[in-house]
Nucleic acid binder design. Sequence first.
DNA 1: TTGTAGGCGTTATCAG
DNA 2: CTGATAACGCCTACAA
Lengths: 336, 336
Amino acid sequence: MKKKKVTIEMIAKEAGVSKMTVSRAINNPEKLKKSTLIKILNSMKKYEYKPRFVARILAGSRSNTFGFIVKSNEDFIIPPFYGECVRGASNWFKKQNYRSMIFNMSDEQSSSLFLDYINSGLIDGLILFEGTHEQSLLEALKSNNIPVVLVGEDPGEMYDFYSVSSDNYNGARTAVEYLISKGSREICYITGTGTKPSVADRLKGYTDVMRENNLNPVYVSTENTLRGGMKAVDQLIEKHPAFDALFCFSDLIAIGALRGLRKRGFDIPRDVRVVGFDNIHISEYVFPSLTTVSQDMSLMGEIAAKTLLQVMNEINPNPSEKHIKLPTRLIVRESA
Amino acid sequence: MKKKKVTIEMIAKEAGVSKMTVSRAINNPEKLKKSTLIKILNSMKKYEYKPRFVARILAGSRSNTFGFIVKSNEDFIIPPFYGECVRGASNWFKKQNYRSMIFNMSDEQSSSLFLDYINSGLIDGLILFEGTHEQSLLEALKSNNIPVVLVGEDPGEMYDFYSVSSDNYNGARTAVEYLISKGSREICYITGTGTKPSVADRLKGYTDVMRENNLNPVYVSTENTLRGGMKAVDQLIEKHPAFDALFCFSDLIAIGALRGLRKRGFDIPRDVRVVGFDNIHISEYVFPSLTTVSQDMSLMGEIAAKTLLQVMNEINPNPSEKHIKLPTRLIVRESA
DNA sequence: TTGTAGGCGTTATCAG
DNA sequence: CTGATAACGCCTACAA
């Protein structure tokens, strides 16, 4: 019952040529006489021939496929921040006729999958998003000579990889300065977890501005999820109940915080102003719509994609562009 | 500079055995003498040997990998509805030591990728989510004998595939009945687009209940996105400005509608009650939090995964279970 | 312009 | 319990 797989050999026979000629018809059609090409094309159509991807890869072809490595959280399989980067990058890849796919490395199984893929040549290069820059992984990739570009974190001199990220320090400064300009004084910060540069930079932006204005920085840290934001409000109320503004490490946290504040009867922005970070798509739809520091995630993705192609082709651009930093922009909406 | 790839042959040589024996050490270790096994394991470790996935596949092994086919929308690469199904399914797969990956079929390139993968044996079976059940795809899969399970839509007798979906008709009924019980009379419906059973069923649930209560059904249709919901409110205000409640095809639409209503100064639920469908994670966090018809997406995913394994192993369960329908549950929150 | 031989890295089959 | 040989389906290199 099962249709037997059509192979290049069958096409060759049917068209009265050798396998090699069929292979050429696929990969270098311009090298064939028109008449032979047409014959072959016809048999291919007739038998609905599809080359087997794995065979080509095993024989040494490039896959022309790139991978995005992301990490799920409890809210989303692909958190919106990643999603918008992925969109930017994959649009660019599409234009160049490359394909791309998303790998999740939240657990063992998924990681083993993409390691297998890389090891097999199924993937030509990787874009690693913020949160997936684990040392062991980076080293493995480096030692296997896999082209990689990092997005969302600037690893500085720590690792020898190209990166694209936002100016987290100044982004945070802008947010806090804005809050101060609106009259807030008791501005607390909900920071993220871990030791990533983005976390450190935004925190520093916040504390610097506070100190420069003789204000007392107060912050709590929480995981980067809706629930994290909600819980952080509880912590904050223990720690410093008098706050009149909240700056949050991410929009996800900010949206969670909105909910936490609402539960306790705060009116936003009247009682508490709230500012997020990222400008994910849904932030425009929540109520009150979120004032936030916008990262141009789509552009980050696109630049990452371009850079990855360069790395792959060993066109290493000048080292000053090794760590690209994009400016951020404050988007003022209803929440502050 | 580049490390040469370690192959099974090198391990064989190093351990003083044949390739076949090494292969056995990987796939059927119990068939080897302990001492040989240990020797082999040691060389594998020493050289950090990783079998090449593509070679195994080409030689005829199963990939033990399943694919999820989803469709992005403008808000999310993987809309929350899918995400929660994927989570349920992949958790189940993990437990059985299968791996899984997500394919996006929003465009040509991405589709070509997963077709290549299937064609090559890189993927053993597929879970197709609502929105990806295109006739041409389904036929291609059927004729290539790929194990498939459909999620989110019940294709009935139209296609010979197993499916798992929710009881959309009764879900919609529950929502509308609830609104009526709360005193709403001018209940409008924002439906989805296309001719999918889920769209038809929910619409029928709505109109049936309205008619049974001598109420006049009024609806507009829109795409399943935040913006879609927002725009639908505009349409509705043209068409039937007197509404006092809104039932929405999805939570995404409902969240968009909340924003649209807010813009025009409606207070929810005082002026307009709003009910969504799906119970995606974020619905609990928006304001007002969304009253919604919950689909157990995680369970749908899990059942789909189990079913897929059965289909693959040709344990076709009794035909009465060919189209599983899960009950829905009304979750009452602030918006209605 | 086209064909031949050989290899990519693994597993199946059948001996031993 | 282990090994030799032949696939798997395509591509590279070299010939013709």
